[in-house]
Design a protein around this nucleic acid. Structure first.
Lengths: 193, 193
DNA sequence: GTCTATATCGGGATAGAC
DNA sequence: GTCTATCCCGATATAGAC
């Protein structure tokens, strides 16, 4: 594991934010260096190539996602509530999503268009959510449908994020959240029959 | 209206394809010129800036979308079938979507991250589909819910496209299509009660 | 570990000949 | 309308002093 010196961690933080807001390719070393407050030259002491920064950023996103999911598991006992908490992300992060879309979805797509080797690492962020959601649905007794349901909830989040970014319509986001909550309620009602 | 000389149309076609496959910013003049088979210098006889090409590409997409929707209106009388036809796009264009995502969604997001002035023009492609879908739902008697339903169907398409691009899983796409068909069937059944 | 200076390259954009 | 040649700039990346 790489040691996180203060400067290195600051670079990853700034790059993480800038890659999200401006896109990976459009974000220059100069922009990151300026955000951190160091010179461009110093930069290369910590990261030799732009791809190295990208990998560090993705790794940071993976870790913060893991941490968040562990928190959710600890703070909420009911798997259905946990799923609802995930669904509500599109509201909690509504402002950022309106401006920049979903961090995972937009980075994954950009790397796909670039034919970038780190694409699969970016997809791994989705895998974390997918596996976690699947686990919640399994706990709820949906042994067969768990992965299908997990992907459906993920698809919901991506659809909402993309259109929220396009139309800047938070009422639409709320309606879709309500609709997915209804959908979840119906599945739970079905399973109790 | 700009005259479409052969060369100009070829440039727009090539740029349209490359912007989709590689992204707007990552596509260089050299790449477009090479795809068309002309020199870079000749390029500027037709378009003075990259933004001009972008606008021409968006305009071309708007026009081809309008044409497609007119065709659908003419070829299919049942509004429910028309909506189903839209839903099936994610299968018909499955290969491209797996590789590059949705043309409208990915361009809109890229322009959002770039803070590009043509972002709203890109959103206009979504508006065409939204208005058209709303019209179908209105014809089906959903006076109040028409726009909500239209946005829901659009969100479906974006969610499926993003995850299809991430996971390359066509079985997932088919499941989501089936799910939306079911959803539409339920709405139609409700309205007949 | 941080800096300045610099090399190198590619991309957008222009000038002008044919 | 098409070409070649060129300018200019910003971006990645390196070298080497402090």
């Amino acid at each position: 594991m790489a040691r996180s010196t203060g400067t290195r961690a600051q670079i990853v933080d700034a790059a993480n934010r800038l890659f999200y807001e401006q896109g990976f390719e459009h974000t220059s070393f100069a922009a990151i260096a300026e955000a951190v407050g160091i010179s461009r030259g110093n930069f290369y002491h910590h990261f030799k190539t732009k791809d190295e920064i990208l990998n560090a950023v993705i790794e940071a996103r993976l870790q913060s996602t893991r941490d968040m999911l562990v928190d959710w598991d600890r703070d909420e006992q009911d798997p259905a509530e946990r799923v609802r908490r995930f669904v509500e992300i599109v509201i909690a992060n509504g402002a950022d999503i309106q401006s920049y879309g979903c961090p995972a979805g937009t980075l994954t797509n950009e790397l796909a268009k670039l034919g970038h080797p780190s694409r699969l690492q970016a997809v791994a962020v989705f895998d974390l959510f997918r596996t976690w959601l699947r686990g919640q649905f399994e706990e709820l007794g949906f042994a067969i449908e768990a992965d299908d349901f997990a992907m459906h909830v993920l698809a919901f989040s991506q659809g909402v994020a993309t259109l929220s970014n396009a139309f800047h319509d938070s009422a639409f986001v709320q309606r879709e959240v309500d609709r997915l909550h209804d959908w979840l309620g119906e599945r739970l009602a079905d399973s109790r029959r």
